[in-house]
Amino acid sequence: MFSKIDKDISRSQLIRYSILIYWSLFWLLNIIDKIIGGSHFLWVGRDRFAQFQKFFASAGLESPFIADFALSVAAALEGFAFVFFIGALFKLFKNKVEDCRSWFFIGISLTLATFTIFSIGDHIFGDRFELLEHTLFWFLTLFSWVVFNRLEHKSDEQAKVKDKRQFFGAAIVALVLIGITSLSIFNYNTDFFSRRTDALAAEQIGEDIYKVSFPFLGGSTVFEKSIRKFKKEHPSKMINHIYTVPKPLRLKKADGLIFYIVTEDRP
């Protein structure tokens, strides 16, 4: 199967296709995220409006119009970058090398412009983590351009090695491992999914202090059920404080969320 692909398309071409598909999907999904807006069934995405609104509000620009405008500019850059990457993909498919290169370059330039503008924003709004993220993407964009162009005229002579036995060996080992992994995952799901919903028992560790240790699967439903259970089992107690153990105090890496319920007797 792989040798068939090798015959039809060179390895360099595959990498070039991968680069174009990556950036096309990258921007397409960003645009979809903006068009959908908010969380829905099968799409969580990121609430960019809230993020932009908070950024601008922190700089004293509270009007939602500013955030809307900035987001629209970002959407325009992303939209055009997507169109040019898709165009480059189409040209590559048609084997129009020079045209493909130019379309890809415009896509790369728009992507560089987008990340440069984002980085300027990160400086202004003081978000150093996003600055690192955007600088890395800026670098990946440049790197993609270099690799894409370097591979333009590479017609890699593929070694004609007979690897049928290795191929079948690899397939068997992979299938066995996939089987074992899947079995383990399905077993874990059968045995432990209830951790996502089951109430937890509170363990008394001192006078009027109870400990609740969460499994990793636990969420707000487990928390609420655990509190309900606690209140039911201790009707004479009144919860007056819940202390969440901060992460540095959870010494064991396997520790999930731990909280203590502090109570007093009902008057």
Partner: peptide, 23 residues
């Protein structure tokens, strides 16, 4: 490409403004 880019930008902007008005 330019026409598609303008359509995408317009659709995104309308959606952004609508989401902003709603939230």
């Amino acid at each position: 490409a330019l026409i598609v880019g303008v359509i995408i930008t317009t659709a995104s902007s309308i959606s952004i403004i609508d989401f902003s008005n709603r939230t």
